[in-house]
Structure formats: C-alpha cells, structure tokens
Amino acid sequence: MKIILKAAPSLSLLISVGASQAADPQTFLKLYSAESQEAPSVQKGEKFFSSKHGNEWSCSSCHGMPPTGEGKHASTNKAIAPLAPSFNSDRFTDSAKVDKWFKRNCNDVLGRACTPSEKADVLAYLLSLKK
C-alpha cells in the first residue's frame, strides 16, 4: 500500500501531462522527482550534462556548455535551438517531444534510457540557467 501511495502523485501528473500534451518545465520536474522519490540536484544535473558516460558524446557535445545558445549536432552539424527553458520558451512544454528527445538523447549519451532521477537532475540544472 505504501508504494501505491508514493506512486500516486507521479501517476496523476503523468496522466495530466499525457492527456493535455502541453505542460511547463516545472510539471516535468515534479513528475521526474516524484518518480525517482529524490529531490533533484542542480549540481548533479550540471555534472551529468557535461560528462561523457561511456559513449562518445555528452549532452553538452551538441547543446553546448552552458546550453543557453544555439547548439550544433555533433555528427550532422544541424543547428539546435537553446535547450535551457529561460532561453527558449518552447523547451519542455510538449510531453510527446520531451519523451521523444529524452529517449533519443539518453540513448546517444548513455546507451540506455535515462532514469527519472537523471532527468530531474538535468532539468533542475537547465531551469537554474537564467538570462
């Protein structure tokens, strides 16, 4: 019963985000934090974002460090809009895009899906970046 009670907040957030498709970055941060049952860490998120994890790229390989300006895909050279939400208000507002890009980018950087804790830490770091 205790597990169900802890899972309920993240489930209700997931249902509301999934149903509406539109959200804001704080909604995703709350969702990932609830799923991980840990407080997000800006410091851990910054370290995760800038580090390689056994694969060729880090998040910053394409998004830059800090990710407040235009980035460039490491292999295609395609331009990438700023990742930090305060520098690009479209970031982390569409649940389908958030799911798609976390899945794709985590696989490129880690060779696996990111954990909810990793997502929360990275998003906390990105939200800490202000104009």
Rank of each mutant, 00 (worst) to 15 (best):
D108G: 08
L126T: 10
S16D: 14
L126P: 05
Q21G: 03
D24G: 12
A79N: 14
N55T: 14
I4F: 11
E38G: 03
M1F: 12
A124I: 04
Q43A: 15
K131C: 02
A7Q: 09
E70P: 07
R112S: 13
S128W: 11
A19L: 15
S95Y: 00
S86N: 14
Y32L: 01
D121W: 03
P9F: 00
K44G: 05
A23S: 13
P67M: 07
A34R: 09
I80R: 13
L127R: 06
A84C: 04
Q21A: 09
D94Y: 08
P67F: 07
P85K: 05
G69V: 11
E56G: 04
S33E: 09
S12D: 10
L5C: 08
P67C: 08
A19K: 14
E118K: 00
A113Q: 13
V98K: 00
I3L: 11
F28D: 01
P116T: 02
T93F: 03
T27D: 13
F48T: 09
S117Y: 10
P85W: 10
L123P: 02
S41V: 01
G18I: 01
N107T: 15
M1H: 13
M1T: 12
W57I: 11
H73Y: 13
V109C: 02
S60I: 08
A96V: 11
W101F: 13
S95A: 09
